[in-house]
Write a protein that binds this DNA or RNA. Structure first.
Length: 216
DNA sequence: CCCTGATTCGC
DNA sequence: GCGAATCAGG
């Protein structure tokens, strides 16, 4: 693979969006993250804050504005995952409950027995979960508000990976409605050997102790 | 360990 | 110019 104008454009775009070199490399294919980094330097677009690596400063809008280059944007607009109306302010406004089994994950996200269908129900088309309809379900569910808040926050920073992009170490928490295009996986780094990132682990696994009486 | 970007240097 | 190897921080 060589650095064609097209590929360089993708590189520039993704890099400016704060994507990591490895992600860009995956996207482009045929190159390693080293190649990407090397190219980035040769192109002169390096400094993205931070010391060594990981800058944690996505800053997704360094648009040079003014002149610069025309930079044709083939992609009209991936249509930002429009933040759906968070519904009711306080009470039950939880997410439409994560899909049954994101991937090969033994642990299942806790299910809300009654908040489950808060979804707008996109027209007819009933979506049958298929497979076993979540057998165990010890009932009881009460995700700490803090955890939910963190999830809401973290999902804004989600990597938005597709099924194919998931790895052993990317959060497999599904976000959005699988029946629409507005669906992706969190993709943030998993915490340990768990299938989810820290925030999602927080809602997926709960200590038996912390969810005793507290009924909404 | 895993991940990140930065640099070096032979090709 | 390219990118693997290596380095260094988190």
């Amino acid at each position: 693979m060589s650095w064609t104008d097209e590929r360089v454009e993708i590189l520039k775009k993704m890099w400016s969006e704060g994507q990591s070199a490895s992600q860009i490399a995956k996207e482009l294919g045929g190159v390693t993250r080293n190649a990407v980094i090397g190219k980035v330097h040769r192109l002169g677009l390096s400094n993205r804050t931070a010391t060594t690596a990981e800058a944690a400063a996505p800053a997704a809008a360094p648009k040079p504005a003014a002149e610069a280059k025309p930079v044709v944007e083939p992609k009209p607009a991936p249509a930002a995952p429009r933040a759906e109306p968070k519904a009711a302010p306080a009470s039950a406004a939880v997410r439409p409950a994560p899909a049954p089994k994101p991937a090969a994950a033994k642990p299942e996200p806790v299910e809300t027995t009654e908040v489950a269908e808060a979804a707008p129900a996109p027209m007819r088309r009933q979506i049958i979960p298929a497979g076993q309809p979540l057998p165990p379900q010890p009932s009881a569910n009460e995700i700490s508000p803090e955890a939910l808040a963190r999830v809401g926050e973290i999902e804004k920073h989600a990597k938005k990976l597709t099924l194919m992009e998931l790895t052993e170490r990317t959060c497999k928490w599904p976000i959005g409605d699988p029946a629409t295009d507005d669906f992706w996986f969190c993709g943030l780094p998993t915490q340990s050997g768990k299938p989810y990132c820290e925030a999602h682990v927080g809602v997926a696994f709960q200590p038996m102790s912390s969810r005793r009486d507290r009924r909404r």
